[in-house]
């Protein structure tokens, strides 16, 4: 089986699993968790394109998530836009903003880039809080309409599950395609040696800005979906802590792996339920996980799974050889 065919097969199996999972679930609690995992998967993939592939850190990605949520929420509640149209506008505006700020910001490297994106996240958080007339300020924006397709309204957990996951699967597929193309290779080349990538004809400066914009656009789509499924948003969901959580998802799942982003998102979505007893100290656990992961499994959980898979694979092969 060629690498390409195996990749398609894995995606089909994953899709099938996503589609049939609700058949095995009773009650709305688990569906609700899975909706969040879907949203977080989109966000982790978005950040992974930037961090895992291009090797550029962003400590302010929650801001693009928030921007998508607020633009969509404001357009629908205050200006009666259709949610779909609002989603498209919020995605384009967020991507556009990232494109504009990307040129100066992505000239920076390493710690400086981390600080600049951190600053951007903080500024956006302040804007979400302070522009009360538009955003509702700290008390939030409520009454955001559900998405609908004709008479099909996405207002219950099962419908939301399919809405979120169909779009998540699309994001996954497009990102996998992108990562395996000349653009994906150019991004990884920039990651490994920006100088050599440029000498090979890769316009690193523009490509980094483009992928930053794509990343912001995907994050905004996730934000818009979040707003329309929750029907209520407040700044607390889009702060610094969440930006760090997103980085944690990407690193724990596996830098440069789309399925890794799903794994990381799933773990970091479920974990808080168990860490509730720790209250605000849950971030300490994330910190510890990050440290342990970078020390002992720098490829993330996905690389661990791959190793186990390979071990089992070679074991089976050996057995079939000895049986023959």
């Amino acid at each position: 089986m060629t690498k390409e065919k195996r990749e398609i097969l894995i995606f089909l199996i994953f899709t099938l699993a996503v589609l049939i999972t609700p058949l095995f679930l009773r009650g709305s609690y688990y569906l609700n968790v899975l909706v969040f995992i879907g949203i977080n998967t989109m966000l982790a993939i978005a950040l992974n394109l930037l961090l895992g592939y291009a090797g550029q850190i962003s400590l302010g990605h929650a801001a693009f998530f928030g921007l998508g949520a607020y633009i969509s929420g404001i357009l629908t509640t205050r200006f009666s836009f259709d949610p779909w149209l609002a989603m498209i506008i919020s995605a384009l505006m967020s991507g556009g903003l990232a494109f504009i700020i990307g040129f100066p910001i992505l000239k920076l490297k390493g710690h400086y880039l981390a600080m600049a994106t951190l600053g951007f996240g903080i500024i956006m958080f302040i804007i979400f809080n302070e522009t009360v007339a538009l955003t509702g300020g700290p008390s939030g924006l409520s009454g955001i309409p559900n998405i609908h397709i004709n008479s099909l309204v996405f207002d219950n957990d099962l419908n939301n599950y399919y809405l979120i996951w169909v779009i998540t699967l699309m994001v996954m597929l497009l990102s996998i395609n992108l990562s395996q193309s000349r653009i994906g290779r150019a991004l990884r080349a920039i990651h490994d040696s920006e100088v050599a990538a440029r000498v090979m004809g890769v316009n690193a400066r523009v490509l980094k800005v483009q992928i930053f914009a794509v990343s912001a656009l995907i994050s905004a789509v996730a934000g818009s979906l979040y707003a329309h499924t929750m029907t209520f948003i407040s700044p607390a969901s889009f702060g610094f802590n969440f930006s760090i959580e997103l980085v944690t998802m990407v690193i724990i799942g596996g830098l440069g792996s789309i399925y890794g982003s799903f794994l990381g998102a799933a773990i970091l979505t479920v974990l808080p339920e168990f860490l509730r007893v720790l209250q605000d100290f849950d971030i300490v656990v994330y910190g510890l996980m990050l440290i342990l992961m970078t020390m002992f499994m720098p490829g993330g959980l996905i690389s661990g799974l791959r190793l186990i898979g390979e071990a089992i694979g070679s074991r089976i092969k050996r057995k079939s050889v000895s049986n023959a």
């Binding site: 653009i183 090979m200 004809g201 890769v202």
Partner: peptide, 11 residues
């Protein structure tokens, strides 16, 4: 990657 300039598909 060396063939980057010999191809042009965008994002």
């Amino acid at each position: 990657v060396g063939l980057h300039t010999k191809s042009k598909s965008g994002i």
